[in-house]
């Protein structure tokens, strides 16, 4: 990895952390808040530009499309999270979107940290295995990574929506569940704990956490309700899914086309592709429920958080929690 690439990637990582703290610090300065929030946006934009350059530099250095292992996919994910937030903030004219801004910065920073802790072999530019030597790689993988980022943002928007809907117990329940799932993935990546315990931690924790959060939807702190913000984040959540769902569909289908081109079967029930189908089905259910107004917005917000957990399981869980399969390129062990 060249020095330029290291500098650019570190710049992106550091700016995401700085922008997170600027978002947080803005609460302490009520008079200057708009200006401080504006600066957080610009700092994140600098990070986004630096990361774009880092990815391009890696591609030039590797002389291939730079998306072939877990580390590179994490860079892409952070890039998509930052880009998607900047897009939302720009199209919605910054107003009130900053509640999502600190979450987006925190997510990007967490993924940078996760990527930086991976073994050196992941950071180094490695030759491709024969199965990955195909133009289909650049068609199949980027839409998937961007869709995962959009679903992440949708789930985070769901959390903010529930917060402004006064459903504080549900929010804390869901945050705890997401942290538990992230811990399982971190332990699966960096420890030698048996995968069965980690699978149980992820799946069991998610099931219990979601049930707890769903039951507690009725507990509403009425004085904390801010209907306009609740509506704004409901809209953002749906907007993210509206972008993520077509991308996930394109990613799954192009994966099928590649698989058929490479080994003669567009669908082989590989664990990762099956999991992507589960995620697709869950968002298809969300869209049906939304269009036909079958359940209220607060429950849809919980569904978007369930989607976040499924996305986490599809993207990182299947490689780190020992599910195996054909998509082992993201695995470390």
């Amino acid at each position: 990895m060249s020095d330029l690439q290291v500098v650019l990637t570190n710049t992106a990582g550091v700016t995401s952390i700085i922008s997170f703290w600027i978002f947080v610090a803005s609460n302490a300065f009520k008079n200057w808040k708009p200006k401080i929030l504006g600066s957080a946006f610009w700092v994140l934009l600098i990070g986004f530009i630096a990361l774009t350059c880092a990815i391009v530099a890696r591609g030039i250095e590797a002389q291939r499309f730079p998306l072939s292992n877990l580390y590179e996919s994490l860079l892409w994910f952070a890039w998509a999270i930052m880009g998607a937030y900047l897009w939302l903030a720009a199209t919605l004219n910054h107003a009130g979107v900053w509640h999502l801004g600190w979450l987006a910065s925190l997510t990007a920073a967490s993924f940078f940290l996760y990527g930086s802790w991976l073994p050196q072999s992941q950071h180094d530019i490695q030759p491709l295995v024969p199965a990955l030597v195909s133009y289909w790689r650049q068609i199949h993988v980027p839409p998937l990574i961007v869709s995962y980022a959009m679903f992440f943002l949708s789930g985070l928007s769901g959390l903010v929506q529930l917060w402004w809907g006064g459903r504080r117990v549900t929010v804390f329940g869901l945050i705890f569940t997401i942290l538990l799932a992230c811990s399982a993935i971190a332990l699966g990546t960096f420890s030698q704990i048996a995968v069965y315990y980690l699978q149980a931690l992820f799946v069991g924790g998610s099931l219990l956490g979601v049930i707890f959060s769903w039951i507690n939807l009725k507990k509403v702190k009425t004085e904390a309700i801010n209907a306009s913000r609740e509506e704004l984040y409901d809209d953002i959540s749906y907007r993210c899914i509206s972008v993520g769902f077509p991308l996930l569909t394109i990613g799954i289908i192009t994966g099928g086309l590649w698989a058929n081109h490479a080994w003669g079967s567009y669908w082989s029930w590989d664990p990762k592709e099956s999991m992507a189908l589960v995620t697709w089905l869950s968002y298809a259910a969300y869209i049906h429920l939304r269009i036909h107004r079958e359940i209220p917005a607060d429950k849809l917000a919980v569904v978007s958080c369930i989607g976040l957990l499924l996305t986490l399981l599809t993207y990182l869980g299947f490689n780190t929690l020992g599910f195996g399969g054909l998509h082992s390129y993201g695995q470390l062990k």
Binding site: V203, W269, S274, L277, V278, L281, S282, A285
Partner: peptide, 28 residues
Amino acid sequence: SVKMSVILIALTAATILVGAWCPQEGQV
């Protein structure tokens, strides 16, 4: 009905999740 579709989608997703978690004899 949408309810029926969503219930079937949820059951199918749960079944596929089990299939993805459990090693499939035909594959491995």
